[in-house]
Design a protein around this nucleic acid. Structure first.
Lengths: 227, 227
DNA sequence: TCCTGTGAACAACTTCACAGCA
DNA sequence: TGCTGTGAAGTTGTTCACAGGA
């Protein structure tokens, strides 16, 4: 008998990827004083089908009321719990160039569940600068810092060539969740979780679709040319 | 008869999402002087299965040689063509806070196919500042700029509350590809393509998996507690 | 009656395994 | 022989449609 059935079940990856969106929307509704939503309404806000939303939520447990809908606050809490946001996750950022600076001062960071505990960069010009009250320190000190005050998630915001070495340092220190902003594939031992956020990949996907659109628009024309 | 059969076929979304990764890796190999790769080797570099790689590439056409592998340069060119990177995509960034600054000076931007043509922000304190040689101007001027020198892709780097209004302005100006960094769901008319990059969603997904790991590690303990 | 929760049908994607060509 | 390209099988994710409880 487990304290939390939601955590016992297998939650599909596709569902996990959507939960943050549901949570964000529910938080906004709660701020607006909305007490209850139907799957139809919430799905419309988030931009998914209501059946999808209901199936997703069914993986967490049964928190809706038939004929009525979902209590906004309860559902937000249950999603937070499923995602593990009821505890605090200490985050360290490595690489304090433009992007690192932007990430450190990004307000959304602090919002819920995440707390920046360390900023690292080996450039002496940056060392000891303070951002949001935290000093930038050499990467070599991360391991000792982690031993004193554990880091749960490491964020890599360095240029691509440095990323693997930084990653190795993080893994070596015992950190097993990594968010990588560098355009590089990282190799890590099994058990370590890496997610990548990449601007240029996203731009290229947009370019692909933009190209399709312009080809479709010019179809008649190119058909003539091709004759 | 079309000039480019790759563009006629349907390429699955999942494949399109991986093409940029293949391209990046091939470019690196080309720089290192590698002339030819097998699907096995390339897949290992990218971190996918070789069968997946071959199936993905088969959607573009047949550019490999049986018994040998793929010519690195040819394959890179064909992927570039499929993604539409043989033409140049003019990009505008709206919202020049920390993130906008970081994006504007991000070198990966210029690499291939993308070129920043405009930076916009309504904060008078920022207006006329120059980044990478481009002046920051009020959003109201975007539409006129677009008419003179077209913008293909709009990047939204504003806070969430401003995102929808900025999006409406971009769409109103006739831009139909948008990359959104604000943590907000945008509603757009059909035909407009929005992709979102969101730090906190990624962190929350990491937190979910980290939580699973720590639960699994503490399983024996919690089993005892649950009795 | 209304809206949730879910089995069943369907669609997309991945992996397997091998035919076929250099 | 060696590696690509691809049908077929297997897996995962989505949508439908309705049973069932408030």
């Amino acid at each position: 008998m487990s304290a939390d059935p939601a955590l016992r079940r297998e939650i599909p990856d596709a569902t996990v990827a959507r939960l943050p969106e549901y949570l964000r929307t529910l938080s906004r509704l709660a701020e607006d004083g909305v007490l209850s939503v139907s799957s139809e309404e919430l799905a419309a806000e988030v931009g998914v089908r209501s059946a999808q939303l209901r199936k997703d939520l069914s993986h967490l447990g049964s928190y809706g009321v038939r004929g009525v809908g979902y209590d906004v606050e309860t559902l937000a809490l249950e999603i937070s719990r499923a995602l593990g946001l009821t505890e605090d996750w200490p985050v360290a950022i490595v690489g304090m160039g433009n992007l690192g600076h932007a990430l450190a001062s990004y307000s959304g960071f602090v919002t819920k569940g995440f707390r920046i505990v360390g900023l690292y960069d080996d450039d002496p010009a940056l060392t000891d600068e303070r951002i949001v009250g935290i000093a930038i320190r050499p990467l070599a000190e991360l391991s000792a810092d982690h031993a004193v005050d554990p880091i749960a998630i490491g964020v890599i915001a360095t240029p691509a060539p440095a990323a693997q070495a930084v990653c190795d340092a993080l893994v070596g220190a015992g950190i097993s969740s990594i968010l990588n902003f560098a355009p590089a594939v990282l190799s890590v031992p099994s058990g370590v979780d890496v997610r990548r956020v990449d601007l240029s990949t996203e731009l290229q996907i947009l370019a692909f679709h933009a190209q399709r659109k312009s080809l479709a628009a010019g179809d008649l024309q190119s058909a003539v040319v091709a004759q």
